[in-house]
Simulated scan of single mutants.
Amino acid sequence: MSYNKELAIHILKQIEKAILLIQDRTLEIHSASDFLTKPRNVEKLDAVCMQFITIGESLKGLDKVTNKELLSTDPNIPWSKIMGLRDFIAHHYFDVDADEIWWIIENELNPLFNAIQTFINILSNPNNK
């Protein structure tokens, strides 16, 4: 590994925090339509989208910091789609679909969280040079 592991771990921990925020902010959400039923829940959708922007931007930075070496070691996660979600939300916010966001939360967030934690554990291992 020819990159700054400490910086990579810092970015990974920021992504981990963003995922935990999404999970916390959606505890009372049980379907996509729940996002749209109350103004308070629409705010939760906004907050979740902001965290997805943060995750996507952080992954772009991580990919740069790690010379594209780290993310490619886990091909099971659609890294480019996550980064693309960031771009879509940021540039086409009024086209964001609550159903799509909820599907991502339900199906993609836990595998992403697990991958991020695995990377943190691997990079934190002192035997890993």
Rank of each mutant, 00 (worst) to 15 (best):
P75M: 04
G61P: 05
K17Y: 01
K60N: 11
T37L: 11
T54S: 11
K44D: 08
T54W: 05
L112S: 01
N128K: 08
I9M: 04
R25Y: 14
K68V: 09
R25T: 04
C49D: 00
F94G: 03
T37D: 15
L123N: 03
D24E: 08
D46Q: 06
L59Y: 04
N114P: 03
P111E: 09
I122N: 02
L36A: 08
K5E: 02
Y3K: 05
V48S: 01
N76W: 08
L36M: 15
L36W: 10
N121K: 06
F113W: 09
I89W: 04
N4T: 12
D63N: 15
H91T: 05
H30I: 02
K38E: 12
I11L: 12
E69P: 00
L45N: 02
I122V: 14
I105A: 05
S80F: 14
M50D: 08
F52D: 00
I82A: 06
N121M: 12
V48A: 03
V96D: 06
W102C: 00
S31C: 07
H91G: 04
I77G: 06
E57L: 07
P111D: 10
H10S: 12
Q14V: 04
S58W: 01
I22Y: 03
K60Q: 14
P111Y: 09
F52Y: 15
I11D: 06
P39T: 06
E108L: 12
C49K: 01
G56Q: 03
D97T: 03
K68E: 15
P126V: 11
Q117E: 15
T54H: 08
P75Q: 05
I9W: 01
V96L: 07
L71R: 03
I53C: 14
I89F: 07
Q23E: 07
K38V: 06
D99K: 05
I9K: 02
T66L: 02
F88R: 13
F94Y: 15
H10R: 08
L59M: 12
L21K: 10
N127Y: 10
A115V: 07
H91R: 10
F52P: 00
I116L: 04
Q14E: 14
K13L: 02
L20F: 10
K38A: 10
D46W: 08
L21N: 14
S72H: 11
L27W: 09
T54K: 09
T66S: 14
K13W: 02
I77D: 10
E100V: 14
N41W: 10
Y3F: 15
S31P: 10
K13V: 03
A90L: 04
A8V: 13
I82E: 01
E16R: 03
V42F: 11
I105E: 04
W102E: 00
W79A: 07
H91A: 03
I122H: 02
L21F: 11
M83S: 11
Q117I: 12
D34S: 11
M83F: 14
I122P: 00
